[in-house]
Computed example of a mutant assay.
Amino acid sequence: MTGALIGLMQTARRLRGNKDGVGAVEFALIAPVLIILYMGSLEISVAMSVNKKLARASSTVADLITQEESVDKVYLTSMVNVVESVMTPFRSEGVRVKVTGIAINGAGNATASWSWQDNGSRPYSAGSTQTLPADLAIPNTFLVRTEVEFDHKLLLVLPGVSDIDIRTLKMAKTYHLRQRMGNSVTCSNC
């Protein structure tokens, strides 16, 4: 019995002094954390890029509409293609577009003159009160508001799991712009 105990103690001394494989063990402990940090930073940078493109798409639509004195549903429907072009290379089947013409009366109260949504409906009824940032509510003016929403699907987080809702980021951008010609932008069939 003492011989076995002595052999066990000698083996323990040899293992305690042996440094082979320490780097592999340290790597095995640190690698998962580093991989998660890398994937997270990639997801954040892609989401920031999508957010910038969404803001650019919203401002581009407002810019194009405010260059016109009058628009119609056909013209507004073409704005969906504009948004999809700006959002390239990101998948744009989750894009939703709303455009509203807002008249601000002499008292500074904003009401919807017309509105259009990409599904063909009216998101705001004519004459409905609209809330604007205080610095935009200038009496006797007109604004075009574009609202673009996008569901960004995350690339790397849990790729095989479909039951988890954190795989989609719901992003939205709103942009207000004044008309460039005339006193307002009208919509003939909105």
Rank of each mutant, 00 (worst) to 15 (best):
M1Y: 12
Q10T: 09
A12V: 04
A12P: 00
R13T: 12
L15P: 00
G21N: 05
G21E: 07
G23K: 02
V25W: 03
I35Y: 13
I35V: 15
G40W: 11
S45R: 03
V46A: 01
M48I: 00
N51L: 04
K53V: 00
L54A: 12
A57V: 03
A57H: 05
S58A: 14
S59V: 04
T60K: 10
A62Y: 01
Q67D: 12
E68F: 03
S70A: 15
V71W: 00
D72W: 04
V74K: 10
Y75T: 09
L76K: 03
S78Y: 03
V82N: 02
S85Q: 13
V86A: 01
T88Y: 15
T88A: 15
R91P: 06
V97D: 06
V99D: 08
G101T: 01
I104K: 06
G108N: 09
G108S: 08
N109E: 12
A112D: 02
W114R: 05
W116L: 04
Q117I: 01
D118V: 05
N119R: 00
S121K: 10
S121P: 02
S121F: 04
Y124S: 02
S128D: 09
A134D: 11
L136C: 02
P139M: 05
P139G: 02
T146A: 03
L158V: 08
S162F: 06
D163V: 06
R167K: 15
A172F: 01
K173L: 01
H176A: 07
L177W: 07
L177P: 00
R180Y: 08
M181D: 12
S184H: 09
V185Q: 02
N189D: 15
